[in-house]
Design a protein around this nucleic acid. Structure first.
Lengths: 214, 214
DNA sequence: CGATAGTGTAAGTAGATACTTCCAAAACGT
DNA sequence: ACGTTTTGGAAGTATCTACTTACACTATCG
């Protein structure tokens, strides 16, 4: 009896818009007016779907992380390129890092860590991300031999690479080539302890293992 | 003629308070009312010293970075500990990282990169920081032999270590011991390409080079 | 002293913004 | 057709906040 609700559909349809908006403007600068304009609906519609702005942010954060993770899982499942899943993943991130906007949303959240809900969400997200990277590092080592850093530490350091790559992208500190060297070369060193010297294990397109002092 | 101005003294006296306040609350959450309360002066006094809130933030950012850099320079100048300046610096950061609040202010700024003044300030800060780390890496290599990463890349990766260490501290993702391993072990690997195995080159207090899988 | 310039306090203002309310119209079931 | 529930739009509200103004008081110089 009565009109059937379509809020669930609308929520799913709006999530990518939220994620893009928060990634672009950050938490504070994205006003509810601006957000509703981007969504093409009235503000009250948003507030019917989510109780408040924090909930919208959390939904966007969750969505963008899960999207990224799904993309990585897909890459891992695709069995092509002889270098093993970890290096494939690293190579992919080296060329496509930041395109999902994940880090931009995370940075926005890091300024709001006084809100316990946002804080918990970020803790969960980093925990999951770290665990994911750690699993890849461990698996890679199983195939390539043990590394020199413990996997825990190596995984955090690799998360740090991604972070600084995003900051560099955001501020225009370095170009795509440097970002690629950063993720690929340093990622290898951290995971393996020393870069492999065998020519068979080499990143496709624009290898950057050559030291370039200036 | 007239009363002599003491604004310059007041500015110097207030800078650490500004820095602490911005580091603790971030840019948006630190209102001018709160800031003036912490400074123990009226809001108009602040606005007599700096033209607007952005200028206060930039002054704090600058101050905290210069403080950190001065602390590092002091450490480099102190010639004690036979491991060389770079490792001394790394060891120091491994145990005292984050105490200056530098990264907290930087994170606050990263959410405000739409403001061109803040953006430029952060670009300059990261450029300077990276150049500093790069110099240390290069000097260290001159003493210890070349590394496997180019110095540019290694320096960015080390900046990434500091960043993720701060995020971890902020969110409570890991404790002091893990943070120490992260900075010390991974820092060494990045700078040197592979960890030194000689027992003479070893971090004082709580060495963490032992792999610890779980 | 008296003129001048500086300081601290307290109240005020204009604009922004998260969130609400109201209401007419639309989409169902009976 | 009719009652019921949902939808979208627009206007409203209470609060917050960067920044200003007004003013009484104080220190310095001639």
């Amino acid at each position: 009896m009565g009109r059937p609700s379509t809020l669930e559909d609308k929520r799913r349809e709006l999530l990518p818009v939220l994620a893009g908006a928060f990634a672009e403007l950050g938490y504070r600068r994205l006003t509810s007016a601006e957000l509703s304009a981007r969504c093409g609906v009235g503000e009250n519609v948003l507030y019917r779907i989510w109780p408040d702005k924090v909930a919208m942010f959390l939904a966007a954060l969750d969505w963008v992380y899960l999207s990224s993770e799904r993309a990585w899982e897909r890459l891992l499942a695709d069995e092509q390129g002889g270098d093993g899943p970890f290096l494939r993943l690293l190579a992919h991130e080296a060329s496509h890092h930041g395109e999902q906007g994940l880090y931009r949303i995370v940075f926005a959240g890091l300024s709001e860590t006084d809100d316990p809900r946002i804080r918990r969400a970020l803790q969960g997200l980093y925990g999951r991300f770290h665990a994911f990277v750690r699993r890849q590092v461990t698996a890679h080592r199983g195939a390539q031999g043990p590394g020199t850093l413990d996997a825990e530490t190596a995984a955090w350091a690799i998360v740090g690479l991604g972070t600084v790559a995003s900051i560099g992208r955001e501020l225009g500190l370095f170009g795509a080539a440097s970002r690629e060297r950063l993720l690929w070369d340093a990622g290898r060193v951290l995971a393996e302890g020393e870069p492999a010297r065998s020519p068979t294990v080499r990143k496709p397109r624009r290898g950057g293992s050559k030291p370039r002092e200036r």
